[in-house]
Amino acid sequence: MPTPDPASRSMRAIGTTAIVAVTDPATADRAARILRDELVAIDRACSRFRSDSELSALQQANGARVKVSPLLFDAITVACEVARRTDGAVDPTVGSAVEALGYDRDFDRLDASGAELCDAPCPAPGWWQIELDGRHRTVRVPLGIHIDLGASAKALVADRAARRIARGVRTGVLVSVGGDVATAGSAPEGGWAVGIGVDSSMPMQAVDQVVSIDAGGLASSSTAVRTWQRGDRRLHHIVDPATGDCAAPYWKLVSVSGATCVDANALSTATVVWGRGAVAKLVASGLSARLVRHDGRVIALNGWPPDEGARPAATPNGEEAS
């Protein structure tokens, strides 16, 4: 008897589109309810745009130590761990920097263009200033530090939802939150097919490449979407914590696969921040990755399947071909 095709459901949440696909079509609605629960929970806990979010309350604590929910504690812990592992290339204390660049509300409500920015870029104060006490589940954010969990929270919720669905509904599952993909349970025959393209909301027919994964996570970061104009500058949402400014757009699109979506997202985002120097780091990491330079050149690393007809764009030790 042939295996049924995976069934999927999609929903709008946290300023983007979330999709759940399951190998057992009969479980699709239950899986979608679990994903929605997770998305609602992460938004209530971690949104920097909601005045009633737990993160907003933490920011208003004037530097006091605050007991927080397990979810917010976990989200901040993961963000700090990602910062540590990327040596600060992906840092949750970029909140003020992102706001100074004009990204101060839900992206859907952001003016696509506006006056030139007046303020100088605001380098991130540093993730290590956040105090986390796991024993008492408290967090202290020093006065003046604003947290932005946008880099890791999407990936975290994808991982959480996929694991919870696989355990609770007992099905193979793929969860995508704005293009950050997590899988759990058994994959369908031939794996989960994931299109790779510059915009996670683009039509399936327009993707650059389709790859298959049967475990773990896959995440992409792009400097070409989620952009806005201020004066004569085109800004994007990936901030270099060291400068507080948008990361130089050396890479147009970076896709990485990893053991979890958080792992993959950490490296895809860090790669954008690292710029040209990222290739050697990615090669040494062992994680498979596909990078698209702004001139369109594609680099596939560590076993990532090359684009059809592509010639090698990097040597095995990570030097880019000219």
């Binding site: 995508s176 293009g179 994931v194 683009m202």
Partner: peptide, 12 residues
């Protein structure tokens, strides 16, 4: 296979 989802920059 046809893609189930697209991984890319965070779209709308």
């Amino acid at each position: 296979k046809s893609a189930t989802v697209v991984s890319g920059g965070t779209g709308s």
